[in-house]
Design a protein around this nucleic acid. Structure first.
Lengths: 132, 132
DNA sequence: TTAATTGATTGCAATATGCAAGTGAATTAC
DNA sequence: GTAATTCACTTGCATATTGCAATCAATTAA
């Protein structure tokens, strides 16, 4: 997506302003998923060609990094870069919005509470868990 | 957009997961814009049919409300609902992301500082300004 | 009464999406 | 060692969405 303006909101949308990209980042942060097939099994059921193109774009944009799995060379291991990790606060605010306005949202209440009242520590905990 | 899952992030994307919807909400919050022609003049230059369809969808989804302008009956006046106002924290986090990773972002430094250190008051100030 | 403005809609080409099927390399099962 | 399976894509094709220019009706201004 070409840069449309210097607006900081428009700029983020140039990176992840579609229905799928943030779900991949979500899977990386919240569900410890790291591979193509894991992303594919997420409940939103994205098509294989879309997943493929989004992984490629996220990598090109520097939000994720790709390495061949040392234990199974058919597999790629995807990880978040700093740019990708820094999308986490945006995702937390989305969770708070849904917990307020969507009665069917399935976010754990405890997580929402921490997102509201203990953000910095929650972010450190979530990102710290990724390192290991 | 039909609901794809009960994930709170997916849910927000079902509402504003495209390149344009959040820019309309941005114009309403940050630039006090209220009409079709004002949105159209934003620097991202969205097409008239896209703007039209997004305004319709945002209204149907309950994020904005539309009224005929009492002073000029050709015009509509668009305002944020509570659902729309509650998207503001998401936009603030996007601004913070861009201020960190995009050297060309044009958000005022003072605004970013307040978004980081004085969020609640900033939100109240921005939304309070809308009422008047 | 004519001209300009506003908020759209329409037609059409280009792009993106969704789905099913297929591919080749790596791994596992026999 | 061969066959079957897994994995990460890729392709083909129908449908949907987008981008762009032109047009429209209603309202307002001159």
């Amino acid at each position: 997506m070409p840069r449309r303006s210097d607006c900081p909101i428009s700029n983020v949308l140039d990176f992840v302003g579609d229905k799928w990209s943030l779900l991949i980042l979500r899977d990386l942060v919240f569900f410890n998923k790291h591979s193509y097939s894991e992303f594919l099994n997420s409940p939103e059921k994205m098509a294989t060609n879309i997943l493929s193109s989004r992984l490629e774009r996220l990598e090109n944009d520097g939000l994720i990094a790709k390495k061949v799995d040392v234990e199974d060379k058919r597999k790629n291991v995807y990880t978040l870069t700093q740019l990708g990790r820094d999308m986490l606060p945006i995702m937390l605010e989305m969770m708070i919005w849904s917990s307020k306005h969507d009665p069917n949202t399935n976010a754990p209440e405890q997580l929402i509470k921490r997102a509201k009242n203990d953000r910095e520590n929650l972010i450190n905990d979530l990102l710290g868990r990724i390192e290991s």
